[in-house]
Simulated scan of single mutants.
Amino acid sequence: MTQAARTRPAPIPDAANEDLPEVGYSPDRPAQDTSGQDLSEDQPSGAGEAPAYDLIELLFFAYRDFVADPDRILAEYGFGRAHHRVLHFVDRHPGLTIAELLDILRITKQSLNRVLKELIEQGYIAQRTGTSDRRHRLLTCTPEGRQLAQRLAGVQGRRVRRALAEAGPALREPASRFLLAMIEPEERAAVSRLIAGGDPTAGTGSRS
């Protein structure tokens, strides 16, 4: 792999740029609220209870602009949001296995393999065989992959810091609690460990 190939990635097919399902999405499991109540669309809402349109739409527009910043960078490489998510979590957790990454992203193995193939072939992610279990493939970012992941995280971090500066630093803790409460109750402990830099395999067995 030459340096030119890494700094000037070849265009990739549109199909490889397809966005992945949102993190935490599972098509086989209905959404639940904090009490465990089924939130699937066929369940009746509370009497006279209107959707929280203000928060729903604020979340939409906040996410739209939050991902727009890295989207502009990804376009330089011919990459999409799927590549961003893979780069982000592999950079944050070197040695992540394919199974762990699938569990984080909640996507099909076929979708992940397509994106990983492109990132590996273009020199942004490397993989090695597990030591105690050779069936495992451990993923790490190459120096080029880490540089790109850090560049993407940098623009999103600046937007978050700007928002906190405008809203007030005291908002950080309640904002974190709100976002954590949006996650499925049974997933919150694992997500908290992952965010804190803990082992993604905690409670599911050791990484090989």
Results as ranks from 00 to 15, higher is better:
residue 73 I to V: 13
residue 120 I to V: 14
residue 58 L to A: 15
residue 67 V to Y: 10
residue 34 T to E: 13
residue 137 R to Q: 13
residue 63 Y to F: 13
residue 59 L to R: 14
residue 77 Y to E: 13
residue 153 A to E: 11
residue 56 I to K: 05
residue 82 A to M: 09
residue 55 L to P: 01
residue 80 G to K: 02
residue 70 P to Y: 03
residue 40 S to Q: 02
residue 41 E to T: 11
residue 74 L to H: 05
residue 47 A to P: 06
residue 57 E to M: 10
residue 151 R to L: 08
residue 116 L to Y: 07
residue 64 R to P: 01
residue 139 L to G: 08
residue 64 R to C: 08
residue 62 A to N: 12
residue 39 L to K: 09
residue 36 G to C: 07
residue 150 Q to G: 06
residue 142 T to K: 05
residue 57 E to W: 13
residue 66 F to T: 11
residue 121 E to H: 11
residue 78 G to N: 01
residue 131 T to Q: 13
residue 129 T to N: 07
residue 144 E to I: 00
residue 89 F to C: 01
residue 98 I to Q: 10
residue 84 H to V: 03
residue 47 A to I: 09
residue 75 A to T: 11
residue 86 V to Q: 02
residue 70 P to C: 04
residue 43 Q to L: 06
residue 130 G to I: 00
residue 110 Q to T: 12
residue 96 L to Y: 00
residue 65 D to G: 05
residue 127 Q to A: 15
residue 97 T to A: 02
residue 77 Y to W: 12
residue 70 P to R: 00
residue 98 I to Y: 12
residue 82 A to H: 08
residue 77 Y to G: 01
residue 77 Y to Q: 11
residue 53 Y to M: 07
residue 58 L to G: 08
residue 108 T to K: 09
residue 129 T to P: 01
residue 33 D to H: 05
residue 147 Q to R: 15
residue 86 V to S: 00
residue 49 E to F: 07
residue 109 K to V: 04
residue 99 A to N: 12
residue 35 S to G: 13
residue 43 Q to S: 06
residue 133 D to M: 00
residue 149 A to M: 00
residue 78 G to K: 01
residue 124 Y to W: 10
residue 84 H to T: 05
residue 142 T to L: 02
residue 73 I to H: 09
residue 121 E to N: 15
residue 125 I to Q: 02
residue 127 Q to V: 13
residue 124 Y to P: 07
residue 105 L to V: 06
residue 147 Q to H: 11
residue 75 A to H: 04
residue 143 P to G: 03
residue 101 L to P: 07
residue 127 Q to G: 13
residue 145 G to C: 02
residue 37 Q to R: 15
residue 126 A to T: 15
residue 98 I to M: 09
residue 114 R to F: 01
residue 85 R to Q: 12
residue 124 Y to N: 10
residue 85 R to S: 08
residue 45 S to Y: 12
residue 40 S to W: 02
residue 102 L to D: 01
residue 30 P to L: 08
residue 82 A to L: 03
residue 117 K to M: 09
residue 150 Q to A: 13
residue 76 E to P: 02
residue 71 D to Q: 12
residue 119 L to N: 06
residue 91 D to E: 10
residue 75 A to D: 11
residue 40 S to V: 01
residue 46 G to T: 10
residue 156 Q to I: 07
residue 63 Y to T: 14
residue 73 I to G: 01
residue 129 T to L: 08
residue 62 A to I: 09
residue 125 I to D: 06
residue 53 Y to W: 12
residue 122 Q to E: 09
residue 153 A to V: 06
residue 133 D to E: 10
residue 31 A to T: 12
residue 141 C to R: 00
residue 34 T to P: 00
residue 60 F to N: 09
residue 103 D to T: 14
residue 75 A to Y: 01
residue 85 R to C: 05
residue 60 F to P: 02
residue 68 A to V: 04
residue 75 A to M: 03
residue 124 Y to L: 15
residue 142 T to P: 09
residue 46 G to W: 06
residue 35 S to T: 14
residue 154 G to L: 10
residue 60 F to K: 14
residue 89 F to K: 03
residue 104 I to C: 04
residue 85 R to P: 03
residue 96 L to S: 04
residue 50 A to R: 11
residue 144 E to Q: 09
residue 71 D to G: 06
residue 30 P to G: 03
residue 84 H to A: 11
residue 66 F to R: 11
residue 85 R to K: 14
